[in-house]
């Protein structure tokens, strides 16, 4: 199972963008990792307005926090991170410092 939790700041990511942001990680994982689409789960957690900060200032940053099967080779993991970051920026139009992507090993 692959899980991505997308932590977004309230009011920053329009609701109509979410379908594209949901299918994006699925497409990247099926393409790069060869995983079936049904094994990739994407969820959203919204940080309430006035409750998210970066560097002590109000934040607009989204955090796309994923767990993938253990044993992913370094270069492949980097490509996965880059592809998901690109997808997120392309879909939302956010700046490069407004998205963090993680793909860590699933604890099993």
């Amino acid at each position: 199972m692959i899980d991505f939790e997308c932590i977004v700041q309230e009011g920053v990511i329009a609701a109509d963008l979410r379908p594209g942001l949901t299918t994006g990680p699925v497409a990247v994982c099926t393409s790069l990792l060869g995983e079936p689409a049904e094994s990739v789960r994407v969820s959203f957690t919204e940080v309430p307005e006035g409750s998210g900060f970066k560097g002590g200032e109000p934040s607009r940053t989204s955090l796309v926090m994923g767990t993938i099967p253990p044993g992913c080779e370094s270069q492949l993991r980097t490509q996965l991170l880059k592809d998901i970051e690109d997808m997120w920026r392309r879909t939302t139009g956010c700046a490069v410092d407004e998205v963090v992507v993680a793909a860590t090993d699933h604890p099993n």
Binding site: V47, P48, F53, K54, G56
Partner: peptide, 11 residues
């Protein structure tokens, strides 16, 4: 660097 520090609150 300060700009890497993320803090959030959830009820």
């Amino acid at each position: 660097p300060r700009h890497f520090v993320h803090v959030m609150f959830f009820d």
